[in-house]
Every structure is written in structure tokens, then in C-alpha cells.
């Protein structure tokens, strides 16, 4: 049986950072990022309002990504909250060397990894919590897929969440994960291939 989960497609959510919609590629981004940089600088200097603004502006996109990464809403919320706390503690270390969005992605990924280290995902125990997914079956299935990808090794789950989940290009994901673009491509290929290999050996219901 072939399963097609064609969902009502929500409009693709904006990537981090979302504020100020921008169509003009470079010019406006420049303006936007200077404004953003200003807020970051103020927050780094200890401006509480600027920090609050920063969190408010980026919460939604962090949360969305965390959901894709964790494969469930509850964990997504936990990770995002933890990432926000982490943001407070480590914002000082942001040196404007990379895009703030890349840095945030890394922050969320690192947070999620740390949390997963201390808490083994107990897939079966959390069925009840998955309230928001369209159906419990889909949710369980999704968690299985993500767990499967997670087992492929370090960095695979991240690629899944960034490229498939967030729709980033391989190059963008590579910058965030600090690997080569080709590594991202390869991991993605592996994910496809191994998931499909999994399919072959499985029993077709």
C-alpha cells in the first residue's frame, strides 16, 4: 500500500529570521540585517527590551524548526524554550561572523541534541502527547521515520530537518552544519536510499 499524506498545505512559513517580509534579495536583506544586528548588539550590551524583542521575533521560526527536528510538538516546545534560555546565555558569543539565522539553527540543534542525550526518546510513551498531529497514526509514523534517520548517524537528522523540513538549499544547510555542501547532498541521498531500502524489506500491508 502506498501512503500519501497530502496535507492541506500551510503557506510555507518564513525561515528564520522572519521579520520584515522581503522580496528584494540583497538590498532589503542588507537593511533588514543591519536593523537585526542593531537589536542583537543592544541585547548583547544588556538591553532587556532588545533581547525580549529578539526572542519574540524569532520564537515562531525556532519553534517551527524544533518541531521538524523533534518530530513532535511537545518536544518542540521544550527544545525551543530551552533554546531561548540558551540564547540568553550565549548571545554574547555571537560574533556576526555568520548569519544570525544560521547561528540560531545551530543553537536549536545543539539544544535538541543535548536534551536528547539526557532523555532517550520514548516514542511509545508519548503517543498521548501528540495532540496536534493530524492523526495519531501519522504522528507515530513520523516519529518512526525520524528515529530511523537519527539512527543513520550524526548529522542525518539535521539534514532532514533543514533541507526537507525547512526547505533550505544544500549549501545553506552546509553552512549551518559546518560541513561541505556535498556532505549534505550525500546524507540526503543516504536518507532517501536507506528509507527506501527499509521499505523493500518491509512487509507490504
Amino acid at each position: 500500500m502506498r501512503r500519501q499524506y497530502s496535507q492541506k498545505m500551510r503557506a510555507p512559513a518564513p525561515r528564520i529570521p522572519p521579520p520584515a517580509s522581503s522580496n528584494n534579495k540583497t538590498g532589503q536583506r542588507q537593511v533588514m540585517s543591519t536593523a537585526l544586528n542593531e537589536i542583537i548588539r543592544r541585547a548583547q550590551r544588556g538591553d532587556r527590551d532588545a533581547f525580549a524583542r529578539l526572542v519574540e521575533d524569532h520564537y515562531a521560526s525556532m519553534f517551527r524548526f524544533a518541531c521538524r527536528y523533534c518530530a513532535n510538538r511537545q518536544d518542540g516546545e521544550d527544545v525551543t524554550q530551552q533554546a531561548c534560555i540558551k540564547l540568553a546565555r550565549s548571545l554574547e558569543q555571537f560574533r556576526f561572523e555568520s548569519a544570525f539565522s544560521s547561528w540560531l539553527y545551530r543553537l536549536v540543534i545543539n539544544t535538541a541534541r543535548d536534551m536528547h542525550k539526557s532523555r532517550r526518546p520514548a516514542v511509545s510513551a508519548e503517543f498521548e502527547d501528540i495532540v496536534a498531529a493530524d492523526s495519531a497514526e501519522t504522528a507515530i509514523y513520523l516519529q518512526q521515520v525520524v528515529a530511523q534517520v537519527d539512527r543513520m548517524g550524526e548529522g542525518f537528522r539535521e539534514v532532514l530537518a533543514l533541507v526537507i523540513g525547512e526547505g533550505l538549499t544544500h549549501a545553506e544547510a552546509a553552512v549551518i552544519l559546518q560541513v561541505r555542501e556535498s556532505t549534505v547532498s550525500w546524507r540526503l541521498h543516504e536518507i532517501r536510499k536507506r528509507l527506501s531500502a527499509q521499505g523493500q524489506s518491509g512487509v507490504d500491508p
Binding site: Y141, L195, S196, Q198, G199, P205
Partner: peptide, 16 residues
């Protein structure tokens, strides 16, 4: 192959 197998296979894996 990938197309047809990924989802069904995984689903069955999930079930079993």
C-alpha cells in the same frame, strides 16, 4: 523504488 517503497515499507515497520 524509493518512491513506492519508502512510505509503505516504513509504515509496515512502524506497525510491526
Amino acid at each position: 523504488l524509493a518512491d513506492s517503497a519508502v512510505l509503505s515499507g516504513l509504515a509496515s515497520h512502524a506497525v510491526s
